[in-house]
Design a binder for these strands. Structure first.
Length: 459
RNA sequence: GGCCGGGUGGCAGAGUGGCUAUGCAGAGGACUGCAAAUCCUUGCACAUCGGUUCGAUUCCGGUCUCGGCCUCCA
């Protein structure tokens, strides 16, 4: 079954045909490192991680490029507010970003280029644009000339006139055309700046992705991804710059994930519904956060809710419980992902459908009677989970997760109480057994008596 | 105003021109010292009005309604 992806450029689902079937290239817009990643940042990270895993399965080689934007006016402002050097802020934030998304089981990209390490490539690209008549210098700025590119607006499906009519910002006087946008801008001495043919300055927002995607993937590559909000202006401008500078088509397939809401409202600090990934990792295991983000189709708007996170955790409880029951059975064909799971993902990354198949596999595993069947369905569940970046941890470690504040009872304390209760049961002292069960339950520990003994888990 | 995407059972959330989504929650049952887990059974849908069709939740059009974007927010 071929992979099909919804391409923003064509506005429909198209069969995915890589330029080079032996080596797929993907570029995804990464974070601007001025603050902790929030849950809205995490969605594209998880979505494109699933795509990366799927592509790796379908093709011999995949280069996944995800940039770090470490030059930006928000960074400058934050560093100044904190009274710290810019490099200290960007390095720390980058490190925290890696920690946070690592907890969400996101694989590192193949290349993670930093904007400040590619200023030379950006300047070269701007020079090429000027030479070809697609850009001009004005008052120390270099601007892209939108009228020089007739196809401008194709990705975001809007005409130049519409853009100007809707503009909410004042148009800088040095622009030849109201739609023109900045490639390079002057930097005063107190802001980060690099020498350039146009004096000391810093790059505009869009040029870094053009320069870095070209550096690592070439002028034309397979997939470019990011949040839906980036379609315009960021991706539209990026495409314009790259096409004009390179004289070649840019990304062939554009993927955009929908916006994230929180409890039905737009996430914002003023509404008090702003969550960083770190905040959530204190409340729930990273794997539950990851599953929650995959529980709606990537193209849909996503409503982040406490209830949804709870359900994601319950879902993983159910799946890990199924695995726990067959802990002593070796899975067969650990790499065989069931066709229906693969088909769901190949159909424009239908993660909710794939997850529903995980449930069905778990049910089959629970119902399996022979060792062979159990081994088969265990293998299917693990392989499916691996493709989705789920179910990879030790079963017992999943059930022992404790929130940030720690647990009232340590693992050894719990085990002691479980043993005591077992002794009470053996002595038919059910009142004492029930008292211990109750005490554990009040501390978030659930007991399960089975033929093989009593197991416990935190919930 | 322009562009775009939605409105599915109590909740979350897929999908389809006629046939069970899936999970949680609810009801009943099996199992259990009690429980949990598991399994079985079961109730509950497709915003609205027209049109196309043998037949539409699924296609087309209108209406209502929610949300996003429109120069630097993923």
């Amino acid at each position: 079954m071929p992979l099909v992806l919804y391409n923003t450029l064509t506005r429909r689902k198209d069969p995915f045909q890589p330029l080079d079937p032996s080596h797929v290239g993907m570029y995804v817009c990464g974070p601007t490192v001025y603050d902790r990643a929030h849950i809205g940042n995490a969605r594209p990270i998880v979505i494109f991680d699933v795509l990366f895993r799927l592509l790796q399965r379908l093709y011999p080689a995949v280069t996944y490029v995800r940039n770090i934007t470490d030059v930006d006016d928000k960074i400058n402002a934050r560093a100044q507010a904190n009274g710290e050097p810019i490099s200290a802020l960007t390095e720390r934030t980058t490190r925290l970003f890696h920690e946070d998304i690592g907890a969400l089981n996101a694989l590192p990209p193949t290349v993670e280029p930093r904007a400040t390490a590619h200023i030379g490539q950006m300047i070269a690209m701007i020079q090429a644009l000027i030479a070809k008549g697609h850009a001009y210098e004005a008052e120390g700025h270099v601007l892209f000339s939108v009228p020089s590119m007739p196809e401008y607006g194709r990705l975001s499906n809007r005409s130049r006139d519409e853009m100007i009519a809707g503009a909410r910002v004042e148009i800088a006087p040095y622009k030849r055309d109201a739609a023109d946008f900045v490639l390079w801008k002057p930097s005063p001495g107190d802001l980060p700046g690099w020498d350039s043919p146009w004096g000391r300055g810093r790059p505009g927002w869009h040029i870094e992705c053009s320069a870095m995607s070209r550096e690592y993937l070439g002028p034309t590559f397979d997939i470019h991804g990011g949040g839906q909000d980036l379609v315009f202006p960021h991706h539209e401008n990026e495409m314009a710059q790259s096409c004009c500078a390179n004289g070649a088509p840019f990304a062939r397939t554009w993927l955009h994930n929908g916006w994230l809401m929180v409890e039905g409202e737009k996430m914002s600090k003023s509404l008090g519904n702003f969550f960083t990934v770190r905040d959530l990792l204190d409340q729930a295991p990273g794997e539950a956060i990851r599953l929650a983000l995959m529980s709606a189709h990537y193209h849909q708007p996503f409503d982040w809710t406490a209830e949804g996170l709870k359900q994601a955790r319950q879902t993983l409880d159910r799946l890990y419980l199924a695995l726990r029951a067959v802990a002593d059975i070796a899975p067969t064909e650990a790499d065989s992902v069931p066709l229906e799971v693969l088909a769901a993902l190949e159909d424009d990354l239908n993660t909710p459908l794939a997850i529903s198949h995980l449930h069905e596999i778990a049910t089959k595993l629970n119902k399996a009677e022979t060792i062979a069947e159990k081994a088969k369905w265990k293998g299917a569940l693990l392989a499916s989970g691996r493709l989705l970046g789920l179910l990879g941890q030790e079963v017992e470690s999943w059930f022992r997760w404790v929130p940030a504040g720690g647990a009232a009872l340590s693992d050894p304390q719990v085990q002691q109480m479980v043993d005591d209760r077992l002794a009470a049961r053996k002595a038919k002292n059910f009142a004492e057994a029930d008292r211990l069960r109750q005490a554990l339950s009040e501390n978030g520990v659930l007991l399960e008596d089975g033929p093989g003994g009593t197991t416990w888990r935190r919930a």
